[in-house]
Simulated assay, not measured.
Amino acid sequence: MDLLDPSLQRYLDLGGIFVFAISGALLAVRKNFDVFGIAVLAFATGLGGGIFRDLVIGAVPAAFSDPGYFLTPLVTTVTVIFLHPELGRIDRAVQVFDAAGLGFFCVVGTVKAYEYGLGTVGSAALGLATAAGGGVVRDVLANEVPSLLRRDREIYAVPAIVGASAVALLLRFDALDNWTMAAAALTAFVIRLLALRFNWRAPRAWSRGTPTAPDPSG
């Protein structure tokens, strides 16, 4: 069954790949990587989450069957190589596009996982992996702690979890249509933007205080 029109899914995928690849390529520039390193981070960030999802559900990754999925991060790499000073100055705009990609990918990933027979929880989990997986691969390759695990970064996984869970529940109750799907993507997008605006952080482990240790000297 096709819950999402294939042509629409392709455009959403390519749009998400483009904005994620920009963030990967820009990080490579900031790390002073060479041209090959910039390309690797662009491809890893743009395609990593989708490839992981497709391998889990047993589908041939679209990146290996559709030239557009390969050309998009390649074009992004060339663009960043020559225009990275300008792109660096519009970093806030890149973050907005990245938030939009997060919303698109958590929806598309959840729907595709459901189409391949996964249940509500599994579909939502793969929706999250699709949205955040590329960023994790990017940070690991760049020798950084993944952003979604860092306390000093705005929440990233939470918006994706909310969007993917909403789509999974809509699918579970047969209430998914173009409007509700768009609403789920918009919700993830808005939460991410609010997190950027107000510096929202995920809570840390609750502590009741550490009792004073006894003096070993007596």
Rank of each mutant, 00 (worst) to 15 (best):
L4G: 01
S7W: 11
Q9L: 14
L12D: 01
I17Q: 04
F20C: 00
S23Q: 12
G24D: 08
A28R: 06
F33Y: 15
F36S: 12
A39N: 13
T45N: 11
G46W: 04
L47P: 02
G50T: 00
G58T: 08
A59Q: 09
A62N: 05
F64H: 00
S65E: 02
D66L: 04
F70S: 13
L74G: 14
T76P: 03
V80H: 12
P85M: 08
L87N: 07
R89W: 15
R92N: 08
R92W: 12
A93L: 15
Q95V: 08
V96F: 12
G101P: 04
G101R: 00
V107R: 01
V108M: 00
T110P: 04
V111D: 07
K112Q: 10
G117C: 06
G119P: 02
G119D: 01
T120N: 06
S123D: 03
A125Q: 03
L128H: 02
T130P: 03
G134K: 00
V137N: 05
D139Q: 10
D139M: 09
D139K: 04
V140D: 03
V145P: 05
L149T: 10
R150T: 07
R153Y: 10
E154R: 03
E154P: 06
P159R: 03
G163S: 02
V167W: 00
L171I: 08
L171M: 05
L176G: 00
D177Q: 06
A185N: 07
L186W: 07
A188C: 03
L194D: 11
L194M: 12
L196T: 01
F198N: 12
R204T: 12
A205K: 10
T210I: 14
T212D: 12
D215G: 11
S217M: 10
